[in-house]
Write a protein that binds this DNA or RNA. Structure first.
Length: 377
DNA sequence: ACACACTACAGAAGCGTCCG
DNA sequence: CGGACGCTTCTGTAGTGTGT
């Protein structure tokens, strides 16, 4: 029953704001002065970042210096203060867009008491995501958000002014750019949720990202085992710890076939020896690289063993990681970067790479093994 | 309450295309 | 040509869920 704090919806009479008045092209003296100030500010910041030797360039290169439409549009080359103002403005534009399009509601405000009574106070202007950024519907929303932020923030002496710095100039066009960027981002997530093909692709990139992360995690864990390994074997295995050369870990095979997925899951559960009560727990299959030699996998295994022993010795055991199981599969990605000969078995190379020019180019290998490995023991 | 293992999201930047 | 636009990938970070 507690009425949620209504966001202070400015009761802006929509009719008062004529969009045609938003960008007056009549250059009054004040406005021209302002534009010149902006250009000077921009030139200063450029000078600061590039420090070109001939700094004393005349400010007017042509008889009619074109005032820059965008000052803060691009992040590159901006001063720290400019970046702070830029970030702040972006937040404000986004917040206005959220309000306007009805994204701000914490879904509790739908107490359906007054939507019917006062629809003209806060009419939501939803974006038309099916259309592009220049669709009249979307232009209207963007213009309105730009107008609100511009009205509040363009004058440093105004009470509503709340930017981190007073001396940073920006333009309406900057604000419009920010709004457009936000629209495009929202449209992207909207389409990703709407279009099944894109939703699938999204799932794939997410999966890729997880793979990447898990490989990095694996690498960092193995790095921790190096001191112990060096003590034991007198060689430094750091050369094998490229995260891209780590195994993949997958929770499901890359297929649409639900039956195959179910069968895979069953094998995972079995191989991980999950109890009846753990049947729904996560378990991952480990896919070792196909190119990997026994010597390489032995080194990694030894590092993992050292790591596992160290973990066991801890009094406070960390949360057990998701069980990884081997089902005898490999992944076929070629190693990025340059590998050493000892990492790749000759017969595998002959069967898979030798004779394929493109693959030979892609797979880079050093001539000789590092000291302590392969033929260089 | 905390650490861990993700997950979602946003911004930066690059690319190709279109158009005046 | 330059800019606007749509689209993509990469990266960092804030947020979430879960088990000790």
């Amino acid at each position: 029953m507690a009425p949620p704090p209504q966001p202070p919806q400015l009761p802006f009479p929509a009719s008062v704001i004529d969009p045609a008045l938003d960008s007056p092209q009549v250059p009054t003296t004040d406005q021209r002065l302002e534009l010149l100030e902006r250009e000077i500010e921009q030139l200063k910041s450029q000078k600061r970042s590039t420090s070109s030797p001939d700094a004393g360039l005349p400010k007017r290169r042509r008889k009619n210096p074109k005032p820059s439409a965008h000052i803060l549009k691009k992040a590159k080359g901006l001063s720290t203060k400019q970046m702070e103002v830029r970030t702040s403005l972006m937040k404000k534009v986004k917040s206005e867009l959220k309000n306007l399009t009805g994204r701000a509601n914490d879904d509790d405000s739908a107490s359906d008491s007054d939507d019917s009574d006062a629809p003209n106070i806060s009419p939501t202007l939803p974006f038309a995501f099916a259309a592009n950024v220049d669709d009249p519907v979307n232009v209207k929303v963007i213009d309105r958000a730009v107008h609100l932020v511009w009205t509040e923030q363009h004058d440093p002496r105004a009470e509503t002014f709340s930017l981190p710095h007073r001396d940073i100039k920006f333009t309406r066009e900057d604000l419009a750019e920010f709004a457009k960027t936000i629209f495009r981002g929202w449209k992207r997530t909207w389409t990703a949720e709407t279009d099944p093909a894109l939703a699938k692709k999204k799932a794939e990139t997410e999966s890729k990202g997880r793979q990447e992360m898990r490989r990095k995690e694996l690498k960092s864990n193995r790095l921790k085992a190096i001191p112990e390994y060096k003590k034991k074997y007198k060689v430094d295995p750091v050369c094998v710890l490229e995260s891209d050369w780590m195994s993949d870990t997958i929770s499901a095979p890359d297929t649409d076939d639900e039956e195959k997925k179910t069968a895979h899951r069953r094998r995972l559960v079995q191989a991980a020896r999950l109890n009846p009560s753990q049947q729904d727990d996560p378990a991952w299959e480990r896919l070792r690289p196909a190119f990997q030699s026994t010597e390489l996998s032995d080194i990694k295994d030894e590092l993992d063993t050292i790591r596992a022993a160290a973990k066991n010795k801890l009094k406070k055991r960390p949360r057990p990681s998701v069980p990884r199981v081997d089902l005898g599969h490999t992944h076929d990605r070629l190693p990025t970067g340059t590998v050493w000969p000892f990492m790749v078995p000759q017969d595998w190379y002959d069967a898979n790479i030798d004779g394929h020019e493109d693959l030979e180019d892609e797979m880079r290998m050093y001539e000789t093994d590092p000291v302590g490995f392969g033929t260089n023991l």
